[in-house]
Amino acid sequence: MSRVRVASFSISIDGFGAGPDQSLAHPLGVGGEALHGWIFPTRTLQKNLFGRDGGESGEDDKFASRGFENIGAWILGRNMFGPVRGPWPDETWRGWWGENPVYHVPVFVLSHHARKPLVMAGGTTFHFVTEGAEVALARARDAADGRDIRVGGGVQVIQQYLRRRLIDEMHIAISPILLGSGERLFDGIDLPALGYSCSQRVATPAATHVVIERN
C-alpha cells in the first residue's frame, strides 16, 4: 500500500515552516526562502527545478533525492499553488513553476473554490479538491497506483494530515536560521500522543535532517 510522506520540508530553529506575509514577491513568506538554503545547491534540485547538470552531492542531496523516489501523487495546499485568494478570478495563474513543474505526476490541491484540472507539461496535472483533506488523499491514492503520496505543504495542510495520523513518515530539515514569526509547523500538535517518534537524525553544515515516523 502506498505511504503518505512529507519530504524535504524545511523549518527554522524556532519552528517556522514559512515566513509571514506570503505574496507574489515573497512566495514563501518574508524571509522564508532562507529556510531552503540547504537544498538549492543540491544535484537533485538543480536537475528537477532548473534542468541543469551538476550541483552538490552528499547528505543534503541524498535527502533531497529520497523525497522524489517512488512518488505517484502529491497533495498541496492552495497557497503552495499560488498567491491568489478567494474565488478564482480567472484561470491565468498556472502555478509558481512555469509550464513544466517539478512534480511530473498528478497533484491534488486543497481549495475552497472549484477549478477545472490544469494539465501541464511533463506529466503534471493539478486537480483542485474542494471536499477536504481525506477526499484529496483518497483521490491521490487512486492516482498513485501503489506508489507513495507526498504531502508538500504548506504548514496547515501538513497539520491536517498529522492530526488525523495519516502521515507515515516526515523528513524535516531544520535550517540554521531564526524567523521570529510566520507559521509554526508543530504548533498545537502533540507528536508523541499521536504516536510519532524520531527514527533518524543527520547533521550537515547546512541543516539538521530529522526523520519522524508513525509507530
Rank of each mutant, 00 (worst) to 15 (best):
N70G: 04
L118W: 10
G77N: 04
F50G: 03
P106Q: 06
V105I: 06
G86D: 11
F68I: 03
W97C: 01
D90P: 07
L49R: 11
K47S: 10
N70D: 13
W38P: 01
G77A: 08
P83W: 13
V135P: 02
W93G: 02
W38S: 09
D53V: 01
I71A: 06
D61M: 00
V107F: 03
L110S: 13
N100T: 15
G122Y: 12
K47Q: 10
G86T: 09
I75N: 03
T42V: 07
E69D: 08
G77T: 09
Y103M: 06
V129Q: 07
E99M: 01
E59D: 10
D60K: 02
F40E: 11
S111Y: 11
A114Q: 07
W38Y: 13
A136Q: 09
L28D: 14
G122M: 07
A73G: 13
A64D: 06
E99N: 08
F126W: 01
D53C: 00
L49S: 02
L45A: 08
F108N: 04
A73N: 12
G29R: 12
P117F: 06
R66C: 01
G37R: 08
W96M: 12
Y103Q: 08
G98E: 11
T44F: 06
G37W: 00
G32W: 11
W88C: 01
A114Y: 01
R94V: 13
W93L: 08
P87A: 10
G123T: 09
G122D: 10
T44G: 04
E131M: 07
R66E: 13
G29N: 14
T124E: 11
V135K: 14
A136R: 05
W93M: 05
V105S: 09
L76K: 00
G67A: 15
E131P: 02
G55V: 07
V119M: 10
E134D: 15
G54N: 02
T92D: 06
R43F: 02
F108T: 09
T44K: 01
A136W: 03
G86S: 08
V30A: 15
M120L: 13
R66D: 13
E59A: 15
R52H: 11
S111F: 14
F50N: 08
E131V: 00
K62W: 03
A114D: 05
I71P: 01
V107K: 06
R94N: 01
Q46G: 04
P87V: 02
G82P: 13
G29V: 14
I39V: 14
R66K: 13
E69S: 06
R52L: 15
G51F: 14
T42Q: 02
V135W: 02
D61L: 07
E56I: 05
P87H: 06
W74E: 08
L35A: 12
L28N: 12
N48T: 10
G98P: 12
V105W: 08
K62P: 00
T130H: 03
G31V: 03
Q46A: 07
D90W: 13
G67S: 15
L28A: 14
